[in-house]
Amino acid sequence: MLNQSCPLWRVPGLEPDQAFGQALRNLRTRRKWSQTDLALRADVDRNYISLVELGKNSPSIRMMFKLCDALDTNPSALIADVERRIQLQLAPPKRKLPAMLTS
């Protein structure tokens, strides 16, 4: 659930475009597809896929649905992964306990 008092896109850290690109790349590589494979399935240019994955380009809603259709996933699942990636960047790092305290 999003914190309404502190929108994720206003907090320093992972930008939404970068998080989207990481999530898209994760879906693509889990299928062992190249950028060209995804581009052909989504009927877009391979360079466009590269720019989105790098966080340099933001897809429109229509394009996001097209990419999700090509990847056989729901846009809501992709956006949930984007939110999770942003939240992970905002969470304080977990500290390791000394070995004598974990025994």
Rank of each mutant, 00 (worst) to 15 (best):
A70Q: 05
N57K: 12
L8H: 06
N47Y: 07
M100F: 15
S58I: 00
R30I: 00
L54A: 10
R25S: 10
E83C: 15
A77I: 06
A19F: 01
E83F: 08
G55N: 02
P16K: 01
L2R: 13
A99G: 15
L14F: 03
Q18M: 05
T73V: 08
L88S: 12
A39D: 10
D43R: 07
L90Y: 06
I61M: 14
K94L: 13
E83N: 14
D69R: 08
A91C: 14
Q22E: 09
I49Q: 02
L38D: 09
M1H: 14
A19H: 02
V11E: 13
Q35K: 04
G13S: 07
M64T: 07
L8K: 04
Q22I: 04
R62N: 12
L71N: 03
V82Q: 07
D72P: 12
Q89P: 12
M63S: 11
P98R: 12
Q4G: 14
N26R: 10
E53T: 03
D17C: 09
A19S: 10
K56T: 02
P59L: 00
V82R: 03
L67I: 00
A23H: 02
Q89E: 11
I61C: 14
A80R: 05
E53P: 10
G55C: 04
L78A: 08
M100G: 15
Q18R: 06
D69S: 13
N26V: 03
A39Y: 06
K66F: 02
D72N: 12
R62D: 15
R25L: 06
M1C: 14
R10V: 03
L40M: 10
A80D: 11
S58V: 02
P12S: 04
P98I: 03
S103P: 15
L27S: 06
M63G: 08
L38C: 09
D43L: 07
E53Q: 06
K32H: 12
L2N: 15
R10G: 14
D45Q: 09
I79V: 10
K96I: 04
A42M: 05
A77T: 10
N3M: 12
L2M: 15
A70F: 06
P75C: 01
L67W: 00
P92K: 08
A80C: 10
Q89G: 15
S50K: 05
V52I: 06
K96R: 14
N57S: 12
A99Y: 09
D81N: 11
A91I: 04
N74M: 08
R62T: 09
Q35I: 00
T102G: 13
S50A: 12
L88M: 10
